[in-house]
Nucleic acid binder design. Structure first.
Length: 471
RNA sequence: GGUGGCGUAGCCAAGUGGUAAGGCCAGAGUCUGCAAAACUCUUAUUCGUCGGUUCGAUUCCGACCGCCACCUCCA
């Protein structure tokens, strides 16, 4: 299994530090607003990495933080006339809700910055004690020149960092590259007591402290959006590695941007689509399919046309799965020979694994799945019924792989009234069939049209009528 | 200015030093009382342009053109 490690800018064999459990830290959102599709892409990639590692037999501990104290939260709260705490809480809850709607499994731990202030203070104190930080007017700054490897993640030399600096330089800092780990409180802002006076933590120290608290000094995979590579992740490394003397994260993964009209989707650009709005227009599986239709390290453009394409692809997949479903469980104990379809099932499984093993290539994995869909459909046209066990295998292989990607919802049909509904529809189809045999097209069409108005669509096939729910 | 990425059929998108996965759309067909749906088949001698290396390059190297991103908060 290989992962592209953005620290070394190359594909590397993935060997977890502890074979019992893979540790993953994923940078979560700053909860001053609802999350948008770009945030969703990163969260979804993390979700699928976790699912795939589990599929491959690993145990995984995933930590995804919430930044719940920050300038943006304070400012937005002031605009809305609510407390920062309240705003962060609301948006945190909304984040969990949206994530769940996208089918993202909750992380094992969702630490919040405001609940880890002591850990942050302790980490900052350690850095001060080591001479790697200094205090000015109640704020604490990280002394970048104390960390020789600063710039290793973003591949930047010290002079490069200074040359392009567009940020206004705080003259009090010893070095323009130094960044704050603790911000002295301004009047009216939320603050916590510290050895340096009232204040609040800087963004970078939050992740260092929370990651190490829940996953230890060294974590296997640290994931986040491309934009966090510098300065956020660079600073996390500087703080953590200087404090502990250990490698902070062994594999760094950065998810490329989601774009809209060719430009990066970003909150400051005002060109974002909220995840919850997208979920109101498209099923979960369609959005997931869209987001994984390109490799995670390549930019992806959000537009209605692309979503429509995913809708079409999902329809094809679901038709096949629905048709296969009735063979579920019909495994043949005394297997004889190897049919072409059986070979296709095995090929799909190995292609899927190869694709996912190579830096989680979901686009290629989808290719493997859809190739089998075609094979299955072709087999249907020539099947004589003896293939049931093979269809069962195909069903199992497809649902397993689709479950890893989260693009097939096996429980979608569950519900108490489903059985009765199905019986009623079966009855109507029965009546319609009788009418058709009398060539009573009026009655036949009336049933068909009326059901259609209820979003139930009849399809006449060679083997009789079937139906499905349309949206 | 520094750093990194991208440019593959009408659209989206994988991929490899040996001759291009998959999806959408389109065209044809099968099924059908009609329809819808579904399914099948077909669709890139070619991978931004120009050079180079090679028996052979879309894949490696160089130049150029175009696009995007990071260097400031943003996943």
């Amino acid at each position: 299994m290989k992962i592209y490690n953005s620290l070394n800018r190359q594909l590397e064999d993935f060997v977890p530090l502890n074979h019992e459990q893979v540790s993953i830290y994923s940078c979560g959102p700053t909860v001053y607003d609802y999350i948008h599709m770009g945030n969703a892409r990163t969260a979804l990639v993390t979700d699928i990495i976790r699912r795939y590692l589990v599929y491959r037999g690993y145990k995984v501990k995933l930590v995804q933080n919430l930044t719940d104290i920050d300038d943006k939260i304070i400012n937005r709260a002031a605009e809305l006339g609510v407390s920062a705490k309240q705003l962060a809480h609301q948006n945190g809850e909304a984040f969990f809700e949206d994530s769940q709607r996208l089918g993202i499994h909750p992380a094992d731990v969702h630490p919040k910055a405001t609940e880890h202030i002591p850990e942050m203070i302790s980490l900052i104190q350690t850095l001060i004690d080591k001479g790697a930080a200094y205090v000015i007017d109640g704020s604490v700054y990280y002394r970048v020149n104390q960390f020789a490897e600063y710039g290793k993640l973003s591949n930047r030399k010290p002079e490069d960092l200074l040359a392009g600096a567009r940020v206004e330089i705080d003259e009090r800092k010893e070095d323009p590259r130094d960044f704050d780990m603790w911000k002295a409180a301004k009047p009216g802002e939320p603050s916590w007591d510290s050895p340096w006076g009232k204040g609040r933590p800087g963004w970078h120290i939050e992740c260092s402290a929370m990651a190490m608290k829940h996953l230890g000094k060294t974590i296997d995979i640290h994931a986040g959006g491309e934009d966090l590579r510098f300065p956020h992740h660079e600073n996390e490394i500087a703080q953590s590695e200087l404090a502990t003397g250990h490698t902070f994260a062994r594999y760094w993964m950065h998810v490329a941007f989601l774009k809209i009209d060719g430009k990066r989707m970003g909150k400051s650009e005002q060109n974002f689509i909220l995840l919850r709005d997208a979920l109101d227009h498209y099923p979960t599986e369609v959005i997931r399919h869209f987001l994984i239709s390109a490799h995670y390290r390549h930019p992806l453009d959000y537009n209605p046309e692309s979503l429509a394409k995913s809708e079409g692809a999902l329809r094809r997949l679901n038709n096949c799965l629905d048709a296969l479903k009735k063979y579920d469980g019909q495994v043949d104990a005394n297997e004889t020979g190897v049919s072409p379809l059986q070979e296709a099932v095995e090929t799909m499984k190995s292609r899927f694994t190869d694709a996912m093993d190579t830096d989680f290539n979901t686009a290629q994995a989808l290719g493997a799945i859809f190739t089998l869909v075609s094979e299955v459909n072709r087999s249907f046209t020539t099947s004589n019924g003896a293939d049931a066990p093979v269809f069962a295998q195909a069903y199992q292989a497809l649902t397993e792989t689709c479950e890893v990607l989260g693009i097939y919802n096996m429980d979608a049909q569950d519900g108490n009234d489903v059985e009765q509904r199905d019986q009623l529809i079966a009855l109507l189809l029965d009546i319609r069939q009788e009418a058709r045999s009398r060539k009573d097209w009026d009655t036949s069409d009336k049933i068909r049209d009326s059901l259609k108005e209820l979003n139930i669509e009849i399809q006449d096939t060679r083997d009789g009528a079937t139906w499905k729910i349309i949206s």
